[in-house]
Every structure is written in C-alpha cells, then in structure tokens.
C-alpha cells in the first residue's frame, strides 16, 4: 500500500524533473516540475478524435495499458512492507502483466492502419522482447542468491557486504535503469523529442490517440518511470524503518530522474539498426550478475 501511494506521488513530478534537468542542461529555465501533470489533467478534460479505420481495440487498449501498469505497481514492495500483491514468483507475474499492456498498446497502434504506427509497433515489440531475458536473468540470479522468489523477500534478504555484492548492486541498478529506458522508449534507444516519425518508437505509436486516452498513456509512462525507480530504491532499503526509507526513496527517485535528464541531454540516440544489439548486451550484464552470484555462493571455483 505504501509503495503504491509513494509511486503515484512520485509519478506526478518525475517527468517534470526530467524535463527541468534537460532545460537547465541546455541553458533554459524550463517549465515547473508539475507541468507534465497539468498537461495530463487538461487532456482528461478534452474531447477526442478517433480514426475511421479503428475498431473497439483502439477504444479499450489505453485503459488496459494503464490498468496493466497499475497492476504491476501493486506488486512492488516497499522495504519491509509487502506490495498489495505479493506471492512466490510474483516477478514473473509483474513481467507478464506489463506484457499484456504492451500487447494492447501495439495492436492499438496497428488498428489505425497507419504505416508509421506499424513501424513503431514493430520496433516496440522487438525491443521489449530483447529486454525480457535481461530482466529474467537478473531476477533469477537474485532468487538464486537469496533463496526466495518474491520481490519482497528477495529485496529483504539482499544485503550488501562483500565487494562482489556491491558490484552486483551497481550492475543490477544499471540493468534496471536500462530496462526502464527501453520500456519507456527513452534516450539511448529512442528519442521522445525527435521530430521525424520514421525514427520514433513509442511516440509514433500514439500518434492517433487523443483526449482522455492520450492522458492515460502519458500518465502510464510517468507511473512506469516511478515504478522502476521504486524497484531500484528497493535494492538499497533492506529492512530500514519508514523514517529512513521514505526520504531515501524520494532521493533515489529524484536522482534517477535527474540522471535520466542528464543522459538525455548529453547522449545521442543510437542508430536504429544497432539498438537490437545494444539491448541484447544487457543480457550479458545480467549474465555477469549471475556469475557474480555463483561466486558469492561458492559454487564457482
């Protein structure tokens, strides 16, 4: 319950911080950190234009996408407090629930019959497929290390001590950040601010969405950011009491948002044709984590 409330709270200003960081980095003042949220509320009040080609898929897809993200957030624990949903193997549920949202966002893009949106859909499907093994290898290794299979228990028993564990923590953070960037179609993989439809991934998929639906999709992105931020924060909590963990949570989320902003300001997007290789490399980092875990358990050598 705490994690859900805090993630929703953070989602209100996460993208705002990202945008603000980017503005400052490029020498502008930039909008306030709640501006993206105000935009979304404005969208909720607006009417919508639907394409003549679309069917009921286009009507239900944004709702399912949003619901899937909320459902996934419910699985995330907060330090010693379980998420609303917690059971053994819940990270598999987490990944598959996110996948159902992705499925619908992809077919709703295809529903418009636009060649650009099809292009975005194809890329989204491919890239998120390639990111999948990295997440599963990471969680599998952590499950092996801790002997538990639910987010809550894994994070509760994951302690920093030896050098290897610090290295594992850094690599796990890296993998989670990168998965987050891929899932949200952000910088190294996709540039949300590009002006050419041919080079977009996520943005081009929602070209035809408007009004309430667009608001839902945009806010789902904010929520997803905060959700991955919470996962990263959970790596570092252990079983700290709330008066430590809540500030740490907020600091980590802010740091995450600032670093996303910095990353987007100072790196260029990869060439589209090299994205696949880049994303698949993440799995090798996850494999490194796996071997690190084997070393820690003394099974290797």
């Amino acid at each position: 319950m705490i994690s859900l409330a805090l993630i929703i709270l953070v989602s209100f200003f996460f993208t705002g911080i990202v945008i603000r960081t980017k503005s400052i980095a490029s020498g502008r003042k930039g909008p306030g950190i709640f501006q993206p949220m105000k935009d979304i509320f404005r969208l909720f009040k607006k009417g919508a234009v639907y394409s003549e080609t679309t069917s009921f898929i286009f009507q239900v897809a944004p709702s399912i996408y949003f619901a899937s993200v909320v459902m996934a957030i419910m699985v995330i624990p907060f330090g010693q407090y379980k998420g609303i949903i917690s059971f053994e193997g819940d990270f598999v549920f987490f990944a598959y629930v996110l996948a159902i949202g992705k499925f619908f966002s992809i077919i709703s893009a295809l529903d418009t019959g636009s060649s650009f949106e099809g292009m975005g859909a194809s890329r989204e499907a491919l890239y998120s497929m390639l990111a999948e093994p990295a997440f599963f290898l990471l969680m599998g290794s952590l499950a092996l290390l801790t002997g538990y299979t639910s987010f809550h228990e894994i994070f509760m028993t994951f302690h920093f001590g030896s050098y290897i564990s610090y290295a594992l923590g850094v690599m796990a953070t890296f993998v989670l950040v990168m998965i987050c960037m891929i899932e949200n179609s952000r910088m190294p993989v996709d540039d949300p601010k590009t002006h050419l439809e041919l080079t977009m991934i996520h943005e081009v998929m929602i070209l035809d969405n408007s009004g309430f639906d667009l608001g839902l999709i945009l806010h789902a992105t904010n929520l997803k950011f905060a959700m991955y931020g919470a996962l990263i924060a959970n790596l570092y909590f252990g079983d700290l009491p709330l008066y430590y963990s809540i500030p740490i949570f907020l600091v980590i989320q802010t740091l995450f948002a600032v670093s996303v902003g910095l990353l987007e300001s100072f790196t260029a997007r990869y060439r589209m044709s090299h994205n696949a290789q880049f994303i698949f490399t993440l799995s090798s980092v996850s494999l490194l984590i796996f071997f690190g875990v084997l070393m820690m358990l003394g099974k290797l050598i």
Partner: peptide, 14 residues
C-alpha cells in the same frame, strides 16, 4: 468521456 466531444476523421498520415 460522456461530457467530452468525440469526432471521427481519417488516420493521421503525418
């Protein structure tokens, strides 16, 4: 959406 106006038009062809 009941309060909001909806309309249909062709798919946005960029």
């Amino acid at each position: 959406n009941k309060k909001n106006l909806t309309q249909t038009s062709p798919t946005w062809g960029c």
